[in-house]
Computed example of a mutant assay.
Amino acid sequence: MSSSNLRDLQRDLENKANDLSKIQKDIAKNHQMRKKYTIQLGENELVLKELDLLKEDANVYKLIGPVLVKQDLAEANANVRKRIEYISAELKRLDATVQDLDEKQNSKKDTILKLQQRIQSIQSGKGKA
């Protein structure tokens, strides 16, 4: 095999390694988002539990900027439930995305391993790749 073919293989290996690195960054970013949403979900579930303890005539306030604004208990309850629903949907979406990224990562790793073996085989003088 000629040295130009070897250079092509090495360039291909470098490109695949860059692709793998990008996938790994996407996975890390996904995990950060998931962590953020998991914390928000816990906070909102705690708020919902607190709202469920209140009597119907209880005063409920919502912090909007620097101001506390009075809010209807039923409206507050509905808003928190909707937020929990949204966050849960986002977590499911992130789970599906990370599963897809994991599959891509494993596929890239396999491809890189095969390319490395092929290059080593050529460099060791066997050349029967």
Rank of each mutant, 00 (worst) to 15 (best):
Ser124Leu: 11
Gln117Trp: 07
Ser88Thr: 11
Ser88Gln: 08
Gln116His: 08
Thr111Trp: 04
Thr111Phe: 05
Asp26Pro: 01
Asp110Ile: 09
Glu45Ile: 11
Glu45Gly: 06
Asn79Trp: 08
Ile23Asn: 00
Leu73Pro: 00
Ala78Met: 14
Val69Asp: 06
Leu13Phe: 00
Gly65Asp: 04
Glu50Gly: 07
Ile87Gly: 00
Asp12Lys: 10
Tyr61Leu: 15
Ile112Thr: 03
Lys108Gly: 01
Asn44Ser: 09
Glu85Asp: 15
Glu14Ser: 08
Ile84Val: 07
Ala89His: 13
Glu103Ala: 11
Gln40Phe: 12
Gln99Tyr: 13
Thr111Asp: 05
Gln105Ser: 12
Glu75Lys: 01
Thr38Tyr: 08
Ile119His: 04
Asn59Gly: 13
Asn79Cys: 13
Ile64Pro: 00
Asn30Lys: 06
Lys62Pro: 05
Leu20His: 03
Gln116Ser: 10
Leu53Ser: 09
Ile87Val: 04
Leu101Tyr: 03
Leu94Ile: 05
Ile84Arg: 01
Lys108Ile: 04
Glu90Tyr: 04
Lys22Tyr: 12
Leu73Ala: 07
Asn59Glu: 15
Asn18Trp: 14
Leu54Gly: 04
Gln123Ile: 05
Gln123Lys: 14
Ala58His: 08
Lys25Gly: 13
Leu51Ala: 09
Gly65Gln: 04
Lys92Gln: 11
Lys126Met: 14
Leu6Arg: 00
Gln123Trp: 05
Lys82Tyr: 12
Ile64Gly: 06
Ser88Val: 11
Val47Ile: 13
Val60Trp: 01
Asp102Glu: 12
Lys35Thr: 07
Leu68Met: 06
Val60Cys: 04
Asp12Trp: 05
Ile84Gly: 00
Ser107Val: 08
Glu85Trp: 14
Leu115Asn: 02
Leu20Lys: 06
Glu14Thr: 07
Ile87Cys: 01
Asp72Leu: 13
Ser107Ile: 05
Gln40Met: 12
Lys126Pro: 01
Gln71Arg: 08
Gln32Met: 12
Leu53Glu: 09
Ser2Ile: 13
Gln71Ser: 15
Leu101Trp: 02
Asp19Lys: 08
Ile39Lys: 03
Ser3Asn: 11
Leu115Arg: 03
Met1Tyr: 03
Leu115Ser: 02
Leu13Ala: 02
Ser121Asp: 08
Thr38Glu: 12
Thr38Pro: 00
Ala89Leu: 09
Leu63Gly: 08
Ile122Asn: 00
Asn59Tyr: 12
Lys126Gly: 05
